[in-house]
């Protein structure tokens, strides 16, 4: 692990000025994208991912449908300009196929597919910018896009990446850190605190894994707060817009918004 850049300096700061457990800025844009039923753009620092959801709708291929539940179809495309080195990846790239298969099976038990038999939900993921934490951004954006599409979910799925620098755990890695450190991505369901996805590809001692894994589960809760706030803000804006159009505003506009807090 030779690195020209100091990952964590003596003052406890990382190369981009963050502390060890600090996450990057998250911005969430839930505005409408074309004719999609739901869409979301999420930015984790310099990583940006756009997801559009179509459906539940009739499947293009009849033979692919299931009689008792909806089928999720995840397609991922990585923009050639998303990385520093411009490079076109084909849709059949194994890494991309693996990522989209991972996302598909992450959401299969979370989406209440049994409510829509014989239909299909299409999830199109576009990676616009990459700077580490690609899978994390894809999962978070997919959750938000499914929510804006009104697809019933059992819970949010919040993902976060983490790494270990010698013995110090770090959260939310950039590409620079990802290349140098053993790293993992964890996706949690904040309400039940259960883990739906764990991936790690580099060598790491079991004890270190335990630290960073527990920390990442905690960090998922923080991401959840951000995501929930974005969803609430959007709903408030929508209800406000409906009220403005109605002739007789019906009482307290916040009445329908009382989501239980957790």
């Amino acid at each position: 692990m030779s690195s020209r850049v100091e990952i964590l300096n003596d003052g406890g700061f990382r190369s981009d000025g963050r502390k060890q457990y600090e996450l990057r800025d998250i911005t969430i844009d839930l505005s409408q994208q074309g004719t999609a039923d739901g869409s979301a753009i999420i930015t984790h620092g310099l990583t940006q991912v756009m997801v559009t959801v179509f459906g539940p709708r009739e499947a293009k291929m009849r033979s692919q449908t299931l009689h008792d539940r909806a089928v999720l179809n995840v397609e991922m495309s990585v923009a050639p300009f998303s990385t520093g080195e411009r490079r076109k990846r084909s849709r059949a790239d194994r890494r991309i196929l693996e990522l989209s298969a991972a996302i598909e099976s992450t959401f299969e038990p979370v989406v209440q597919t049994s409510l829509y038999p014989r239909s299909q939900i299409d999830i199109y993921i576009h990676v616009l910018q990459q700077d580490g934490g690609l899978l994390q951004a894809c999962i978070n954006a997919t959750t938000l896009a499914l929510i804006t599409a009104g697809v019933p979910l059992l819970d949010f799925v919040c993902a976060v990446s983490g790494g270990v620098h010698s013995t110090e755990p770090l959260l939310d890695l950039t590409t620079l850190e990802e290349n140098d450190l053993p790293n993992l991505t964890v996706a949690v369901m904040p309400r039940t605190r259960k883990v739906t996805l764990v991936t790690m590809e580099t060598r790491l001692h079991v004890e270190r894994f335990r630290d960073i894994f527990e920390l990442a589960c905690e960090a998922g809760q923080t991401i959840h707060k951000e995501m929930k706030r974005a969803v609430k803000d959007r709903t408030v804006a929508l209800v406000g817009a409906m009220d403005a159009g109605a002739k007789h505003p019906s009482g307290d506009p916040d009445r329908d918004l009382t989501m239980e807090d957790r």
Partner: peptide, 21 residues
């Protein structure tokens, strides 16, 4: 030597963190 090289749980039924450990 107790070093993990790959951990892969891509979706499927959700698990409690303790179970994973």
């Amino acid at each position: 030597q107790r070093e993990l090289c790959v951990v892969q749980k891509a979706g499927g039924v959700p698990l409690a963190p303790e179970d994973v450990l």
